[in-house]
Structures are given as structure tokens and as C-alpha cells.
């Protein structure tokens, strides 16, 4: 399902992965200085709207994915109320003789929303960028060494096999009558053969890469070219406008 979303014919999916990555870190940077409620709320709503309209991601799916972060965000609220750096003056009510101040709730909500903004921008990136295009762009535009890029991709492709190997290991243990141990012990004992299998597979992969003349040098022709296009100009323009309006103009 993730793959289907990442390759949809929508605007955000066409944008160059490096630009999306840059925009992600830019938003993180500007959010660090924000301690009010309205800025993160506006960014959160705009981001969710952007993902659902420009990325054609179903709103329902987005909300489900953001739900755990709401819980995570809520922990910032109660923590801020119980352990504030400075207790606010406007006491709203008391919980077990502990004053709950409006200012602390506001800061807590702001920090909670900030965590949700981080999550939503991460979703914008993850839901609209396929792993292959990400690694290819990093190699071609950000000078990632090809040996690391292709090594990563090989490892990523190997991951689905892990589950099969876990089943094999579990059955082998059952045949030997070792199946009745508690789950935690089993995980630990299955971890070593699982990792050993991964290392063997990695060595074979490295040998195959070497024997096929892959030496990790950068001067090679490529099947997939990750060049900047017109959509990238629109995305950059839109993003600069967004940052300027939300963070740089004094709206308060």
C-alpha cells in the first residue's frame, strides 16, 4: 500500500526527493523557536491539507497515522502542567492540590502540536517518496558514495526475507523440542542466527557486486536519471512562500 501511495500520479510524488528532504529540515529548524499554539496548529493543518490534496493521500489514513502522535503529544501537555520550568499565574483549577495554570497548558499544547508538525512533515516525505528514488537522488545530487547507496538498497531488499528466516528458525527449534520457552528468551536466541544469516547474505552480495565490476566509483552511466524538473520550481516557490507567511512575517 505504501508503495502504491509513493508512486501515485500526484504533485508531491513528482517533486525531487532532495528538495522534500531539505524542506523537512527547514520546517524542523523554524519550529524550534515557536512556543505559541497558533503557529504549529496552522502548519499542522496546512501540511495535512497539502498531503491529502497535493499528494492524493486519503485523509482517513493520515489521521490514523497521526493518532499515536496525538497521544505522544499529549504527554507533553501533562508533563508541562506537572513539571513546568516556571508555573504560570492564571490558575484554572486544582488537581489534588496542584494548581493547573493556563500558561503551562498553552506551552504544553504548543510543544505537543510541534511534535505533531514534525510527524506530519515526516509523513509528507515518507508517503510521497519511494525508497529507490530517494537513494538514487542522494547518489546523483548529494554525492552519496554509490557503494553505500547500493549497499543500502540491497539490504533494504533483503528485509522481507527476514520474516521467512524467522519462521524457519522457529520451526527448527520446535523440531528440536525447544519451542516452549518464554517469548523474550526466544527472541534473543533467534536474533543471533537471524543476524548471522544477514551477514552471510551481505558477504555474498558484496562478492556479487565486486565480481560484476562494481567498484563504487562515481563515473558510471545511469538508467534512472534524477534531474530537477518544472514541478521542483513550483514546489520550491510554494515552500518559500509558506515559510515566509507562517514564520517570517509578523502576524501576531
Amino acid at each position: 500500500m505504501l508503495e502504491e501511495l509513493q508512486t501515485r500520479e500526484a504533485f508531491l510524488q513528482q517533486v525531487h526527493p532532495t528538495l522534500k528532504l531539505l524542506s523537512l529540515f527547514t520546517v524542523f529548524f523554524f519550529m524550534i523557536f515557536i512556543y505559541d499554539i497558533w503557529h504549529p496548529l496552522a502548519v499542522l493543518l496546512l501540511t495535512v491539507a497539502a498531503i491529502s490534496f497535493l499528494g492524493k493521500v486519503p485523509l482517513k489514513l493520515l489521521l490514523i497515522l497521526l493518532l499515536p502522535f496525538a497521544l505522544f503529544g499529549f504527554s507533553f501537555v501533562w508533563l508541562q502542567v506537572v513539571f513546568p520550568e516556571e508555573r504560570g499565574a492564571t490558575v484554572l483549577f486544582y488537581v489534588f492540590h496542584m494548581p493547573v495554570a493556563l500558561e503551562n497548558i498553552q506551552t504544553g499544547v504548543s510543544l505537543g502540536l510541534r511534535a505533531m508538525v514534525f510527524a506530519s512533515w515526516s509523513l509528507l516525505f515518507v508517503l510521497t517518496t519511494s525508497p529507490v528514488s530517494l537513494v538514487m537522488s542522494l547518489i546523483q545530487k548529494w554525492h552519496m558514495p554509490p557503494s553505500i547507496g547500493y549497499g543500502m538498497m540491497a539490504a533494504y531488499r533483503f528485509l522481507p526475507q527476514l520474516r521467512k528466516e524467522l519462521v524457519v528458525i522457529r520451526r527448527a527449534r520446535q523440531i528440536r523440542g525447544m519451542g516452549s520457552k518464554p517469548r523474550m528468551r526466544e527472541w534473543k536466541e533467534a536474533g543471533v542466527p537471524l543476524m548471522a544469516g544477514a551477514v552471510r547474505k551481505a558477504e555474498r552480495t558484496a562478492l556479487a557486486m565486486e565480481s560484476k565490476g562494481f567498484d563504487g566509483s562515481r563515473k558510471r552511466t545511469r538508467y534512472v536519471q534524477m534531474n530537477y524538473k518544472k514541478t521542483d520550481v513550483w514546489f520550491t516557490a510554494g515552500f518559500i512562500l509558506f515559510i515566509t507567511v507562517v514564520f517570517l512575517l509578523p502576524l501576531s
Partner: peptide
């Protein structure tokens, strides 16, 4: 070297999951 990088990739990918 290449073998180091690929083996590190596989171990780290498993740990990443």
C-alpha cells in the same frame, strides 16, 4: 571497503527494522 560497507548495511538494516 565494499564488503565492510555492505555488511554494515545489512546489519544496520536489520537493526533499523
Amino acid at each position: 571497503n565494499l564488503r565492510d560497507i555492505v555488511v554494515i548495511s545489512f546489519i544496520s538494516a536489520v537493526l533499523g527494522v
